[in-house]
Amino acid sequence: TEEYTYTDKEKADRAAKEWANRGYTVTVTQDGPTYRVRVG
């Protein structure tokens, strides 16, 4: 499991979509002003 942190919702959504397109399980959680994209 890897985790990426973004401050921009659009970038987080785009990253999540790209990982999902590659067949990974993706979870996006909002943590205050940041968005965490957990992959795998």
Rank of each mutant, 00 (worst) to 15 (best):
G23S: 02
N21H: 09
E18V: 08
R22P: 01
V37E: 00
A12H: 00
Y6A: 01
A12N: 00
T34I: 15
V39W: 04
E2I: 15
Y4K: 03
T34C: 14
R38H: 14
K9N: 04
A15M: 08
T27S: 10
E10L: 09
E18W: 15
D13K: 08
V39M: 03
T25R: 10
D8W: 03
T25A: 10
W19K: 02
P33L: 12
A20D: 04
W19L: 06
D13Y: 15
P33Y: 10
R38E: 11
Q30A: 09
G40T: 15
E18R: 08
Q30W: 07
V39E: 01
N21C: 09
R22G: 05
Y6G: 03
R38D: 06
T27C: 07
D8L: 05
R14T: 11
A12T: 03
V37S: 00
G32M: 02
G23R: 02
A16F: 05
A12R: 02
T1V: 14
T27W: 09
T34H: 12
V39K: 03
D31Q: 08
T25I: 12
E10M: 09
T25F: 12
E3A: 05
E3V: 13
T34G: 07
Q30T: 08
T7N: 11
D8H: 05
D13S: 09
A16Q: 05
A12D: 00
V26R: 00
V37K: 00
P33D: 15
D31A: 06
T27V: 11
E2H: 15
V26P: 02
R22D: 05
E2D: 11
T29D: 07
N21D: 14
V28Y: 04
A16W: 04
V26A: 06
W19G: 01
R38S: 14
E10Y: 09
G32W: 03
Y35N: 01
A15L: 05
V28I: 12
G32A: 02
E3H: 06
E2M: 15
D8M: 05
A12W: 02
K17W: 11
T5M: 10
T7Y: 14
E2P: 08
V28T: 05
V26G: 00
K11E: 15
V39H: 02
Y24S: 02
G32R: 01
Q30V: 10
P33G: 14
R36M: 08
K11W: 07
T34Q: 08
T5F: 14
Y4D: 03
T34A: 08
T27Q: 08
T7E: 11
R36T: 14
E18I: 11
G40R: 13
W19D: 01
Y6M: 02
V39F: 04
V26M: 01
R38N: 12
D31V: 13
K11L: 14
Y24E: 02
D8A: 05
A12S: 04
T1R: 09
T29S: 09
D8P: 01
A20Q: 12
K17I: 11
P33V: 09
D31I: 12
K17Y: 10
K17F: 11
V26D: 00
D8I: 06
A15Y: 06
V37L: 09
D8Q: 06
E2K: 15
K9E: 05
T7F: 13
K17H: 09
T29P: 00
T27L: 08
D31Y: 08
E18G: 06
G23L: 02
E10P: 05
T25G: 05
Y6V: 02
T1K: 07
R38A: 11
G40Q: 15
Y4N: 03
T25K: 11
E18A: 09
A12F: 03
R14A: 14
Y4R: 05
R36P: 01
T27M: 09
N21K: 13
R14Y: 10
G40V: 15
E10W: 11
E10V: 10
D31K: 06
K9T: 04
A15G: 04
K9L: 07
E3P: 04
Y4G: 03
T34N: 12
V39C: 05
R22K: 14
D13H: 12
T25H: 12
T25N: 10
T1L: 12
A15V: 11
D31N: 08
A12P: 00
Q30F: 07
V37Y: 01
Y4H: 05
Y24H: 05
R14H: 11
G23D: 02
T7D: 13
Y4F: 13
E10D: 12
N21L: 13
E18D: 10
G23E: 02
A20F: 09
R38V: 15
D8V: 06
T5G: 05
E3F: 09
R36W: 06
T7K: 09
G23P: 00
W19C: 05
R22H: 07
K11Y: 08
G40E: 15
D13F: 15
N21E: 14
A12Q: 01
Y35L: 03
Y6K: 00
Y6W: 04
D13M: 15
N21P: 00
G32Y: 03
D31S: 07
D13Q: 12
A15K: 06
W19R: 01
R14P: 01
T5Y: 13
N21W: 07
Y24Q: 03
T5S: 08
N21T: 09
Y35G: 00
Y35K: 00
K11T: 14
Y4T: 04
D8N: 10
D31H: 09
D31R: 05
T1P: 11
Q30S: 08
Y35I: 07
G32N: 02
V37G: 00
A15W: 06
D8G: 04
G23H: 03
